[in-house]
Amino acid sequence: MIRKTFESDIQQVKDEVLALGSMVEHAIIGSVEALKKRDIKAAEKIIAEDKDINKKRFAIENQLMVLIATQQPMAHDLRLLASTMEIISELERMGDYAKGIANINVRMGEEKLLKPLIDIPRMAEIGASMLHRSLTAFVQEDVAAANAIPMEDDEVDALYNQIYRELMIFIIEDPKNIERANWLLWVAHNLERVADRVTNICERTVFIATGEFSEIKSSDDEFWEKQKKNK
């Protein structure tokens, strides 16, 4: 193989992206777990660990920049390296959502949860699983998987809408609930955003593999189109 060194450098970058992805996954699940248990110590740990996520992102960014400067990538290699730059930035933002959830946990202090968490952990699980599989699709350049994963957003959106309605009822019942309801809404919103960013990763994977920029329609888009039609 002619570009053995370059190939192995690329493989190393992919491994690092997977490692970054698993840190983010861990943070998402952990932040919700900590909230569920109202474990402030665990939340503080997640906030601190977000710095490691950011550090790793910069380290990968630097690795990519060195490869671009020294290897002059073209065609598929160029698409891969440029898109990986985007993907790590998506991952870092997802890490910020997890940190946001942990921050809410800390801010809630002694306050009790408005309701036991059932749907929110479910959202976190689905989001983390989508993230995990989107990165597998990225590494394997699996276009079919990359196109399919965003459609799973359905369930995340359905859960989000359900949580939203529930929390509204709490608010209507008693305005004293507003702050606590708002906290949970914020958490749910962060998790909903995680799934959206998975779509961006999948779009990049399709671009790397095919050279085509395509916006993958998530179920989100279909939902709003349906709403429009129903009106």
């Binding site: 193989m1 002619i2 570009r3 370059f6 990538p73 073209m74 065609a75 598929h76 290699d77 160029l78 698409r79 050279g211 085509e212």
Partner: peptide, 17 residues
Amino acid sequence: FTRPKDKRTEDYVTGRF
């Protein structure tokens, strides 16, 4: 140089030919 159509072009411009 960003999205060649022919595999042989791809291999050449990426230095794998």
